[in-house]
Amino acid sequence: MRLLLSRTGLTTLILAIPLYAGTARADDCANAQDQATMNECAGKAFNAADAKLNDAYRQIEGRLKGEAASKKLLVDAQRAWVAFRDAECNFQGGPRDEAGSMYPMVVASCQAFLTNNRLKDLQGYLNCTDADTDCPVPAAQ
């Protein structure tokens, strides 16, 4: 039996092979050997940290239900923090046109680091007790 591929089908197959190979390599981030894999792994680390941060943020929002003024302060603080994080990480990455292929890794690594630090802050708010007078988030019921 002879397999016939159209030019479009062959092009699709050829383009899909490196994508599959990159996915397989990115599963072993501890042993990443090339810049593309390191960039992808840094992006995955940031996405994981961001998902945890969003979960903690939603929990805090839930505890602030019915407290419109406190919730607005939370939203304002988080927006300012995201703006800071992104500006700081872009600064650390340097001018994109000068940074080269490492730019995505540097920025994503910075974002993951700062996001994990912010996560610790939010988790601290979630672990407050009623005795913590300086905590902006009510204790869990």
Rank of each mutant, 00 (worst) to 15 (best):
M1N: 05
M1C: 03
M1F: 01
R2P: 02
R2F: 00
L3W: 14
L4T: 13
L4E: 12
S6K: 10
R7H: 11
R7W: 06
T8G: 06
G9A: 07
G9V: 05
L10K: 10
L10Y: 06
T11A: 14
T12C: 09
T12E: 14
T12Y: 07
L13D: 07
L15C: 11
L15V: 07
A16W: 12
I17K: 11
P18W: 00
P18T: 06
L19I: 10
G22V: 05
T23A: 12
A24L: 12
R25Y: 04
A26G: 10
A26V: 09
D28S: 10
D28P: 00
C29S: 08
A30Q: 10
A30V: 11
A32C: 06
A32E: 05
A36N: 13
A36F: 06
T37G: 09
C41V: 09
C41L: 07
C41D: 06
A42W: 03
G43V: 09
G43L: 10
G43F: 03
K44Q: 13
K44E: 03
A48R: 12
A49L: 06
A49V: 06
D50L: 12
D50I: 06
A51Y: 02
K52G: 05
K52D: 09
L53P: 01
L53R: 05
N54L: 01
D55Q: 15
D55R: 15
D55C: 08
Y57I: 04
R58P: 01
R58L: 05
Q59S: 05
I60W: 05
R63T: 02
L64P: 11
L64R: 13
G66Y: 11
A69E: 03
K72E: 14
L74W: 13
L74F: 14
V75Y: 11
A77E: 13
Q78A: 01
R79L: 00
R79E: 01
A80Y: 02
A80F: 02
A80T: 08
W81T: 09
V82N: 08
A83C: 08
F84D: 04
F84N: 04
F84K: 11
R85V: 04
D86I: 00
E88P: 00
C89W: 04
C89R: 08
F91A: 13
Q92W: 01
Q92E: 08
P95S: 11
P95I: 12
D97W: 11
D97P: 01
E98W: 04
A99V: 01
G100Y: 02
S101L: 11
S101A: 15
S101K: 15
M102C: 06
P104I: 02
P104V: 06
M105P: 00
M105G: 00
V106K: 08
V106R: 12
V107L: 03
V107K: 02
A108Q: 14
S109P: 00
S109H: 03
C110K: 00
L114T: 07
L114N: 08
T115E: 06
N116V: 01
N117F: 01
N117V: 07
R118P: 03
D121M: 10
D121W: 05
G124T: 12
L126E: 04
N127W: 01
T129V: 09
T129C: 07
D130Y: 02
D132W: 04
D132S: 07
T133D: 06
T133G: 11
D134I: 13
V137P: 04
V137Q: 05
A139N: 12
Q141G: 13
Q141H: 14
